Amino acid sequence: MRPSGENDIVGSADGFAASSTIRPRISAAQVARTAGVSTATVSYVMNGRAGVSAETRSHVLDVAQRLGHTSSVRADQLRAQRTRVIGLVLTDIANPFYAEIAAGAIDAARGKGYEVFVSHTQEDPDTLRSITEAMIARQVDGVVLTVLHPDDGDVIRSLRSAHIPFVQLSRRIESVAGDFVGIDDFTAATQMMEHVVGHGYTDIVTITGPRTSSASAAREAGFRSVIDRHGLRVSNGRGITTYLSESGGAQAVQQLLSSKVLPRALVCGSDVIALGAISALRVNNIRVPQDVAVTGFDGLFPGASSLVELTTVRQPRRELAEQALELLVRRIDGVGGSFQSVLRAHEMRIGTTCGCVRKGP
Rank of each mutant, 00 (worst) to 15 (best):
M1R: 06
N7F: 15
I9D: 00
P24A: 05
I26F: 08
A28M: 10
A29V: 00
V31E: 14
V31N: 09
R33P: 01
S38N: 02
T39D: 02
G48A: 04
G48W: 03
G51W: 10
A54R: 15
H59G: 07
R74Y: 15
L78G: 10
A80H: 07
Q81W: 15
R84P: 08
V85N: 13
T91A: 13
D92S: 07
N95V: 05
P96S: 09
F97E: 00
F97K: 00
E100R: 06
A102Q: 10
A105K: 03
R110L: 11
T121E: 03
D124I: 03
R129L: 05
R129S: 14
S130R: 13
I136E: 13
V140Y: 01
V140C: 00
V144G: 06
L145R: 04
H149Q: 02
D152Q: 03
G153H: 04
R172I: 12
E174R: 01
V176I: 11
A177D: 12
G178N: 06
F180Y: 15
F180C: 09
F180Q: 09
V181G: 13
G182D: 11
T187L: 07
M192R: 01
G198M: 00
Y201D: 03
V205T: 02
T206Y: 06
I207C: 09
S214E: 11
S214Q: 12
A215I: 14
A217E: 15
E220L: 05
H230Q: 02
R233S: 11
S235H: 14
T241A: 11
G249N: 03
Q254M: 08
L257T: 04
S258K: 00
K260H: 09
K260L: 06
K260R: 15
V261P: 00
A265M: 02
L266M: 13
V267W: 02
G269T: 11
D271Y: 07
A274E: 02
G276Q: 12
S279F: 14
N284R: 08
D291S: 04
A293M: 02
D298P: 10
G299M: 08
F301L: 14
V308W: 00
V308I: 12
Q315W: 02
L320K: 09
A321Q: 09
E322G: 08
D333H: 14
V335W: 08
G336P: 07
S338H: 08
F339G: 10
Q340T: 06
R344V: 15
H346K: 04
I350F: 09
G351S: 01
G351H: 05
C354R: 12
G355L: 04
R358I: 03
P361T: 03
